[in-house]
């Protein structure tokens, strides 16, 4: 299993042709207390860059864009009932969606953990 990161502060953990997508610790820290999460329907086809989910803090709403394209095979409905999980365990239990990768080549545009850390340090 390999984990990739996007400049939009998402993590993408790839196991075979399934990618699990969530937001990074940096992202949840910037958002603050998460009070609402909206997830896509299972079966929805996402192209890279499509709006995949919505996450709202007390203060504002933010979109989560699909860092890679594919069909949604699972959504983490636990987040809908307990949005604060996104703050508690963003890179673990609070994953957002799993997609069946449409094009593994899209992973090449993403960063590894070291590159992402270096990127965050520049912000």
């Amino acid at each position: 299993m390999t984990t990739y990161y996007s400049k939009d502060h998402e993590w993408i953990s790839v196991d075979g042709d399934t990618a699990t997508i969530g937001i990074t610790g940096y992202a949840q820290e910037q958002l603050g207390d998460v009070v609402y999460v909206e997830l896509p329907e299972v079966g929805k086809a996402l192209s890279k860059g499509d709006e995949a989910a919505v996450v709202e803090s007390v203060k504002a709403a933010s979109e989560v864009y699909a860092a890679v394209g594919g069909e949604v095979v699972e959504a983490n409905d636990a987040l809908v009932d307990e949005p604060a999980k996104v703050n508690d365990d963003p890179e673990g239990a609070a994953w957002f969606i799993k997609v069946k990768l449409a094009d593994a080549g899209e992973l090449e545009d993403l960063m590894d953990a070291a590159a992402y850390k270096a990127y965050v340090d520049t912000l």
Binding site: G32, D33, V35, S57, V58, K59
Partner: peptide
């Protein structure tokens, strides 16, 4: 200051 480290929810 928009918030301190404890966060908006706790401050509220």
């Amino acid at each position: 200051p928009v918030q301190y480290p404890s966060g908006i929810m706790n401050e509220h």
